[in-house]
């Protein structure tokens, strides 16, 4: 059976817990494969960039594994990539969490810490509202586990927004490149539907069209 299941490569660096991502992709009929090999990441048709931990540790791990450049190249080329949580943050230029550490910089802007009278970390469910140009993202409630976030929408991407002491970027998308601050793999049936739509957007020529379904909930 496994041979028929489309491979989805997951970037494995550091100590990130990947079991939830692996399980969520498996439930969608994909064959998740963990890798930290630059050539494999470069060649992967469909890639997930997860991440928990600190911005500096994540960037250090990506650079040490020599995958920063191939990640940058594939995102600039618009190849199917789903970045999750810290995976979204490292796409930006820098983060207040780790001053002086450069991110991948494929998305303009800086990550900053939540401000105001709110609980930090943001642990729990929060409403997501999409800009009209979103195709993969949809309105709904998403599960978050983060202390830092992007406060401004980067040019060239469609954005979805949440609010925690002020509006912040819930997710951004450009074609089959989707980056979520929330955890779609932990966001129940809404998150599962998002993963299905992303796999579908990753392209029928990759044998993933059978996984696609119609968009559940509000089209945005």
């Amino acid at each position: 059976m496994t041979a028929d299941r489309p491979k989805v490569h997951i970037v494995r660096t550091g100590t990130a817990n990947l079991a939830s991502v692996v399980a969520a992709l498996s439930r969608q009929g994909a064959d998740p494969v963990l890798t930290s090999d630059a050539a494999t990441i470069d060649a992967a048709d469909v890639l997930v960039l997860p991440g928990v931990g600190s911005f500096a540790a994540a960037m250090d791990a990506l650079r040490r594994a020599d995958v920063a450049e191939v990640l940058t190249a594939r995102i600039n080329a618009g190849r199917p990539t789903l970045a999750i949580c810290l995976g979204l943050q490292v796409l930006f230029e820098a983060s207040e969490e780790s001053p002086g550490v450069k991110g991948l910089g494929v998305v303009p802007g800086e990550i900053t810490r939540f401000t105001g009278a709110v609980r930090v970390p943001q642990l729990g469910w929060n409403a997501v509202a999409c800009e009209p140009s979103c195709r993969v993202l949809s309105d709904g409630d998403a599960y978050y586990a983060n202390s830092y976030r992007a406060g401004h929408a980067p040019a060239g991407f469609a954005a979805a927004w949440s609010d925690h002491g002020g509006p912040f970027i819930a997710a951004i998308e450009r074609g089959p490149v989707v980056a979520c601050q929330f955890h779609p793999e932990l966001s129940g049936s809404w998150g599962a539907a998002l993963i299905r739509r992303w796999l579908a957007a990753a392209g029928p020529e990759r044998g993933l069209s059978s996984l696609s379904t119609t968009k559940a909930g509000a089209r945005c």
């Binding site: 079991a19 939830s20 399980a23 969520a24 498996s26 439930r27 599960y143 586990a145 966001s187 129940g188």
Partner: peptide, 12 residues
């Protein structure tokens, strides 16, 4: 934990 994780799509 592994068996529950396989089924569960909410945080554990």
């Amino acid at each position: 934990v592994a068996a529950v994780r396989h089924e569960l799509s909410i945080p554990l």
